[in-house]
Simulated scan of single mutants.
Amino acid sequence: MSLTPQDIKDDEIRVISSGNNYNGDTPHNRPTTRRKWIVTVSIMAMLACILTVVYLVFAKNSKEDSLEIITNETVVYQENSEDIVPDTIISEPLSVGFISVSDTIINRIPLTIFNPTILTPTLQIGTDVLNDSTARFVLQAADVRGDNGGIVGAYVNKGELISKGQAKSGFCAIIGGKINIGVADATPLLEQALETDGYFFRQYPLVVANQVVENKPKGKSLRKALAELNGETIVIMSRKEMTFHDFSQSLVDLGVANAIYLVGGNGYGFAINSEGRKIEFGRQLKNMRPNTNYIVWR
């Protein structure tokens, strides 16, 4: 092979390279790959910092919101709080007794349940109790005769025998602030009420030992019952007119163990609930009989 004039001699060195190789003295010819990586990493680092800041701010705001909700709930239930829940009236501290009121439906029968809390029951004759600010729950108790206005059946008021007789076998005795209800033609609780400044009255029996008690009246009316349910003494009221039998059956279906009747129909009364609201039922007549009597919780 012949040599051209450009060929090198044996004692010379020729560096052979492609035209794309760069000269270290010319930085503008360096490849852009490294620059791209540096830019990409920088952008990713900036995004990570931004996301971290956003997360911390969001977490802080969420924590503050949660604390605010807990604080509001605490303030609402403090006894002497000045904050008032919308549509709520807190008239007195929760240590004062009140009536828990709830509605239920048993076999399509609407009932209202009144549960006295931190309250003591007594009996009282006369309508003065309707204006008594200390009364938290007031209902008519024993029936009053239509002819002479006397109380029907035995009635003891703070140890004093007001009325005699046994027109109805159901009874309520209040001894030492505790209510006892049952059915008996004669009961030692009557004598005990007389001896201990207690209270006693007679009414129709409705339920005995989880069994319906039949009564002679067959008409329909709004009904009220003084009842034992789950170990507590409560009042149950029907929200529609019912016969004695159907009302008693609804009490049994609810789980009532024992119950006696309270004056039903339009017999007036009221309850003060936990929010301090007065819930009235029945109709307050202008001319009430002098012996109209009430079971009262204070």
Rank of each mutant, 00 (worst) to 15 (best):
S2T: 14
D10E: 13
E12Y: 00
R14N: 04
V15N: 05
S17D: 02
G19F: 05
N23R: 05
G24S: 10
D25Y: 06
P27L: 00
H28I: 13
R30A: 09
T33V: 11
K36R: 14
I43V: 14
L47Y: 06
L51I: 14
T52Y: 11
V53T: 10
V54T: 09
T71Y: 13
Y77F: 15
E79W: 04
N80W: 05
S81N: 09
E82G: 05
D83H: 12
S91T: 10
S91Y: 02
P93E: 00
L94Q: 11
I105K: 13
N107W: 01
L111Q: 14
P116R: 08
L119G: 09
V129E: 07
S133T: 13
T134L: 11
T134G: 07
D143K: 10
V144Q: 01
R145Y: 04
G153I: 00
A154V: 00
N157Q: 04
K158Q: 10
E160S: 15
S163P: 03
G165W: 02
K168N: 05
G170L: 08
C172A: 15
G182Y: 01
G182T: 05
P188W: 03
E191S: 10
Q192S: 11
E195W: 05
T196V: 00
T196E: 05
F200Q: 08
V212C: 03
N215W: 09
K216D: 14
K218I: 06
K220R: 11
R223M: 08
K224E: 05
L226W: 11
E228L: 07
N230V: 04
V235S: 05
V235W: 08
E241N: 07
F244E: 04
H245G: 01
H245D: 10
S248Q: 00
V252G: 03
L254A: 01
G255I: 00
A257R: 14
Y261H: 15
L262Y: 04
L262W: 07
G265K: 01
G267K: 04
R277C: 12
K278F: 00
I279R: 09
E280V: 13
F281L: 08
K286G: 02
N287G: 07
M288L: 06
